Amino acid sequence: MQLLHTAAELRAALAGQSKTAFVPTMGNLHAGHVSLVELAKQHGQPVVASIFVNPLQFGAGEDFERYPRTLEADCGKLEAAGCDLVFAPDVAEMYPVPQSFSVQPCRSLTGELDGAFRPGHFNGVATVVLKLFNLVQPRVAVFGKKDYQQLLVIRELVRQFNLPIEIVAGDTLRDPDGLAMSSRNAYLDASERMQATRLQQELAGIRAAVQSGERDFAGVSAAACRHLKMAGWRVDYVELRDAGTLQLPTPASTHLVVLGAAWLGQTRLIDNLDFGLPGRVEV
């Protein structure tokens, strides 16, 4: 496995490649990231992973400075998973001049949910992903479903810029108790870790209710918020949306996603579950 740090090295290593599969990450990797690399191997070769903590997607007061940087351990996991090349630039390499040009994602995808609570976040995500796509020029790129809103933003980025890239979605990996794997789970203390599964449990309860015929979407979401708040969480949102558009469900919606973001102590956790509606045929 090659470890490269500059754009020039990356371009030289990938010269002539037409079937590259790409997995962008911010490092501090866990089994969920490894599963994305394994999925990428099914769709292209060579497999390239990037490790870059992108300052553009962090807002004021967020955890950019303390976000774990674990390059040596990450490279060990990626090599074991069969990754061929790791691109790990520093900030100066990715942004050699001030990034005065940026990608402005459509408000229909980013005006609510995480976009409402993290202003500018998806601008930073879309901008760095477009830069990485230009550098790697993959045929396939793999993103996890855990960041569901991000996944839809990237799909729309590719569509609107006519990029010849297939976006493949990897399922969320979970610990045995159901907690979605996340680099930020390391921020949880022992007591918080025991409580952290509550978010997934509330989302699963909403899914079960809807699949059983409940159609008061706002009511079941509000109940989940109340349950979390009573348990000591600070809730940003729990919402049911159309899985394809992130808009409110309509009678024509066949595939839904329930998304949640909430704070447990000083740690913000996000999760989602997507599911089909019984009796409706997806087209």
Rank of each mutant, 00 (worst) to 15 (best):
L3N: 09
Q17A: 14
Q17H: 13
F22W: 11
M26S: 06
N28W: 11
V37Q: 07
A40E: 08
K41R: 15
Q45E: 15
P46T: 12
I51H: 08
F52P: 04
P55F: 03
Q57A: 04
F58C: 00
A60V: 14
A60G: 12
E65A: 12
R66T: 15
Y67C: 04
A73I: 12
C83G: 08
L85M: 12
V86A: 13
V86T: 13
A88F: 10
V91G: 06
E93N: 10
M94K: 05
M94D: 07
F101V: 14
V103T: 01
S108D: 14
E112D: 14
G115A: 02
G115V: 01
P119N: 02
G124E: 01
F133M: 09
P138F: 07
A141H: 06
K145M: 11
K146S: 00
Q149M: 00
L151H: 01
E156L: 12
P164G: 09
G170K: 00
G170F: 00
D171Q: 13
D171K: 10
R174V: 00
G178Q: 05
S183W: 01
D189Y: 01
L199K: 11
Q200V: 08
E202G: 10
E202Q: 15
A204E: 14
G213P: 02
G213N: 05
R215D: 08
G219T: 05
A231R: 07
R234G: 14
R234L: 12
V238R: 02
L240Q: 06
R241P: 10
D242Y: 09
G244Y: 14
L246W: 04
T250F: 07
S253K: 07
L259W: 03
A261L: 02
R268G: 02
N272H: 04
L273V: 15
D274W: 09
V281D: 12
